[in-house]
Structure formats: structure tokens, C-alpha cells
């Protein structure tokens, strides 16, 4: 049952597959245009793309068209199979991540009775992209790629832990792993008996949100944690040998992952597809929900890219020290405090 239409199972499956594709590509494209092309240009005292379409809005299509025309170069010394496979693993990870994100009361890609683990599943599959990155780095047979890939591996593992720990606070508060029910918990929650705006977890889990944002920045390899791709050091890191379509896939993967994490952050901390004053069960939320969620994702995307183009880059060992000595203890304190307060109230 979707949008009040009676659909066969195969029709619904096709719709859901297309929906996941749209959910991956639309935010990724929006992020690239709005933030990477335009916002950053305005920060940097330039206009950004202006020629392709009104205000350069078609620039993205031009970029994709350019990338598609390029020769797909595989280095001589590269492990051809792994080299060609790696970008698909990275992109597949993002597609898998989006599967559990709810966009409305019925706008879910997988039914909850099959898939109640929600956020746990997200954390699990998002780690798979490391495998793609290490494959790309190793199979490229380039020392820069290898350095970049090893940095990525160390970094993503170090920041996976604070990411998971920061989410646990939300899970304790909502009492469920399922993202849909986390949204409902925020919508129906009350702040000391006052339920007009629900209880978005940003209010109670702000430490969790802070840790989540920092760990997300590292997970996405954005500045100040962009050592895996640092262009002034390892010249692009693991994707230095890629051209054309495969480079494009890495590029889409990067921004789609940013979108996915922004969507998850919005779902966990800002109330997901729901806004105060709207009917949680109504059918129109299936149309309005995705728009609301996208708007909330844009908030997080803006923060990600604002930080990316504001800060310099840390060093790899400084980043590891920051993760293990600061973020993880802080996350554990947050979990403890949340647990105690949950019992008290």
C-alpha cells in the first residue's frame, strides 16, 4: 500500500528500486550543485559555474557527460579485476545504506517486519565501503593510492566506533533500533509533559549529535579529516589512478554517502520526515515527508561542506589521537548519562 494505490508486489518492488536510486542520486546531485559548486564559490569570492543553464544549474550534467566520454584507463601494473570492481563496491554501500531510511509513514524501501535492526544495519553496511577503498588503493599499484587507502582504512575504523557509540544514546532514548520508530518516538515524545514539538533528540542528545557530526566528517573523509584523499599530500589518494566512469562512481559515492549520513543524522536527531504540527499518519505525509527530510539533510550537508572549506587538514596521528582519547570517552560518558537519566525519568 503506497500513496493510496493498490500495487502488485513486483510493481511495488520496481518502484522501491527506482526510489532508492532517486534517493541516492537526487541528494548527491543537490549537494554537489548547491554546496560544492555554489556555496563554496560564494565563500571563496567567486561565482562558480554560470554558463550551463540558469546559474550553472546544468553544470552537473555537463560534468557527468564529460566523465562518461573519458577513456577508462587501467594502469599496467594494476590488478584489473579488483581495480574495476572497487568503485562499484563503494557505490553499492551507499545504496544499501539508504534502504532503511524512512521518507514517510509508508515511504520505506524495506518493510519493518523484515528489517527491524535499522540503525545497526546502517552502521554495519557503511563500513563495507572501506573494503572498496582498500581494494582501489591496493589494486591501483600506486604508492600514493596505497598510502591513501591505508590512511582511509585506519581512519574509517577509528571513527566507526564513536559513530556507533554516539547513536546508542538515541537508541536508548527511543527504545528501538528501527529508524521509522525512532522518528515516531521523536514525533510523539514530550518535553516535561509539553508535546507541541515532540521531542527531537537534538535537544537531549546534543553531545551525541556533536560526536556524530565529527565522526561523520571523518567517515566521509572531508576536511579537516581528509587525509585519505589529501590532494597536496597523496594527490587524491585511493582514486588517483581512476578515470572516466569509475572516477565518477567514486565521486557519486562520496557525495551520496554524505547524503546518506545527512539523512541518518536528520532522522536520528531532527525528527526525520516529520515536522511539528503535521499529522503523523496522514497519507499526504508520503509526499511531504521526502521533501521535509531533504530539507533537513540540506542543513547537515551545509554544515559538512562549510566545515570542509573552512578548516585545514589534521595529520593522521593527530586524528587517531583525537578519536581514541577524546571522542570515544566522551561518547561513553554520553551513553552512561543517557542510561541513568532514562531510568530516572
Amino acid at each position: 500500500m503506497m500513496l493510496g494505490l493498490e500495487l502488485a508486489y513486483w510493481q511495488e518492488s520496481i518502484l522501491r528500486s527506482l526510489g532508492v536510486l532517486a534517493a541516492v542520486l537526487l541528494p548527491a546531485g543537490t549537494f554537489v550543485y548547491v554546496f560544492l559548486f555554489k556555496m563554496v564559490s560564494f565563500m571563496q569570492n567567486r561565482l562558480g559555474p554560470m554558463e550551463a543553464g540558469p546559474y550553472g544549474s546544468m553544470q552537473l550534467l555537463a560534468e557527468v557527460g564529460k566523465a562518461l566520454q573519458k577513456e577508462d584507463v587501467v594502469p599496467d601494473a594494476a590488478d584489473r579485476t579488483l581495480f574495476k570492481m572497487a568503485p562499484y563496491i563503494v557505490v553499492a554501500t551507499v545504496l544499501l545504506t539508504y534502504v532503511v531510511v524512512p521518507f514517510g509513514p509508508d515511504m520505506v524501501f524495506i518493510d519493518n517486519q523484515f528489517f527491524g535492526t535499522g540503525i545497526f544495519y546502517v552502521m554495519a553496511v557503511s563500513s563495507i565501503s572501506v573494503i572498496g577503498i582498500i581494494l582501489a588503493g591496493w589494486a591501483s599499484a600506486s604508492k600514493y593510492s596505497l598510502l591513501g587507502a591505508l590512511r582511509a582504512a585506519g581512519q574509517l575504523i577509528a571513527y566507526e566506533l564513536p559513530l556507533v557509540l554516539s547513536v546508542i544514546g538515541v537508541v536508548i532514548q527511543a527504545g528501538t533500533l528501527d529508524l521509522q520508530r525512532i522518528v515516531v518516538a521523536q514525533a510523539t515524545g514530550e518535553i516535561f509533559g509539553w508535546g507541541a514539538i515532540g521531542n527531537p533528540f537534538i535537544l537531549t542528545q546534543f553531545i551525541g549529535l556533536l560526536i556524530f557530526m565529527i565522526a561523520m566528517q571523518a567517515e566521509l573523509a572531508q576536511t579537516p579529516f581528509d587525509m585519505p584523499v589529501a590532494e597536496s599530500e597523496v594527490v587524491g589518494g585511493y582514486h588517483v589512478e581512476y578515470t572516466g566512469l569509475r572516477f565518477l562512481l567514486f565521486f557519486i559515492g562520496e557525495f551520496a554517502t554524505a547524503g546518506a549520513f545527512a539523512a541518518i543524522a536528520a532522522t536520528l536527531f531532527l525528527g526525520g520526515w516529520w515536522l511539528p504540527g503535521l499529522d503523523l499518519e496522514a497519507n499526504y505525509m508520503n509526499v511531504l515527508g521526502p521533501i521535509i527530510l531533504l530539507a533537513k539533510m540540506m542543513v547537515f550537508g551545509g554544515i559538512i561542506f562549510f566545515i570542509r572549506f573552512t578548516y585545514p587538514r589534521l595529520r593522521e596521528d593527530q586524528l587517531q589521537r583525537f578519536a581514541w582519547k577524546f571522542l570515544i570517552p566522551l561518547a561513553l560518558v554520553n551513553i552512561t548519562a543517557t542510561g541513568i537519566l532514562k531510568v530516572v525519568f
Binding site: 571563496q44 567567486r46 597536496s232 572549506f309 585545514p312
Partner: peptide, 16 residues
């Protein structure tokens, strides 16, 4: 120096 350390934006101010 900003670009070397990873901050792209100061370069544009310097250029300007």
C-alpha cells in the same frame, strides 16, 4: 601555505 595544509579558501582571498 593554506592549500598545503589543506585549507583551500585562504588561497582565493590571497589571489583577490
Amino acid at each position: 601555505m593554506g592549500v598545503q595544509i589543506g585549507a583551500l579558501t585562504p588561497m582565493f582571498y590571497a589571489m583577490r
